[in-house]
Amino acid sequence: MNVRAETRPELTIRRRFDAARELVFRCWTEPDRLNRWCCPKGFTLPFSEGDIRPGGWFKTCMRDPDGTDHWLAGTYREIVPPERIVFSHRWLDDKGMPEHETVVTITLKDDDGGTMLTLHQAFFLSYASRDGHRVGWEETLDNLAEYLVQ
């Protein structure tokens, strides 16, 4: 009998930025920069704190345009300047309890005077969850692109 391997949805997004890799890295690792762009379009960050280092943590509240708060938290597993950032990502339920964990890996490579960013997030419980995160991350990366030209 053949056993079919379980398919677990994952997400990969590649985006080129017209900015030096070191600057893009700092946008992900310096709280004053990170908190100015890191949420989807129309969302705000009324609360965000953390300790950005290997073994460090974060907890953030993203408020959607309707005023609903979405809390998430995670830990930083790896930070390699200016190449790679790996962190866990968990939404928190209404009681503040963590839900399913995914792992986000941000990889930065020099690209002809700019930076090629690859975002990988795995593994999701459903394709719908993956697709929803794709929309959120795409909008968030749009915000990063706008922030980088300010």
Rank of each mutant, 00 (worst) to 15 (best):
D110N: 15
V104N: 09
D18I: 07
S88F: 07
E6R: 06
T118V: 15
R84Y: 03
I79Q: 10
L141H: 12
S88M: 06
F25P: 05
R53H: 11
E139P: 08
D69I: 10
C39P: 00
I13L: 15
L11S: 02
H70I: 07
S126E: 10
V104S: 09
R84K: 14
H100M: 02
R53D: 02
R77A: 04
W137H: 13
R53P: 05
E30P: 08
A5T: 00
L117K: 07
W71P: 06
A145G: 14
F43Q: 00
L119D: 13
S129H: 12
Q150M: 13
L11E: 01
P46M: 01
D64E: 01
L119F: 15
I13K: 11
T7M: 08
D64R: 00
G114V: 01
E30N: 12
S48N: 01
A122W: 02
N35W: 15
I106M: 14
A5S: 00
I13Q: 07
R4N: 00
A20W: 06
R77L: 14
V104Y: 05
Y127G: 10
L125A: 09
N35A: 13
Q150T: 15
F17T: 14
E22M: 06
G42E: 00
F17W: 14
V80G: 10
H89G: 10
M62K: 04
V103A: 04
P40Q: 01
T102I: 07
D142W: 07
R36W: 02
V24I: 11
R130V: 03
C39Q: 05
V135W: 12
D69L: 11
L72R: 09
T140D: 12
T102H: 05
D112W: 07
V104L: 09
G50A: 06
G96N: 11
T75G: 13
T7R: 11
R134G: 00
T102P: 08
P82T: 08
L108A: 10
P81R: 10
T75L: 01
I106S: 09
V135F: 13
W28K: 04
T115L: 03
W71S: 07
R15I: 13
E10Y: 13
V24M: 12
D112K: 10
F17K: 14
P9L: 05
R130T: 01
L72Y: 14
I52K: 06
P65G: 00
E22C: 09
C38Y: 08
F124M: 04
P81S: 10
R4C: 00
E138H: 09
M97N: 15
V24P: 06
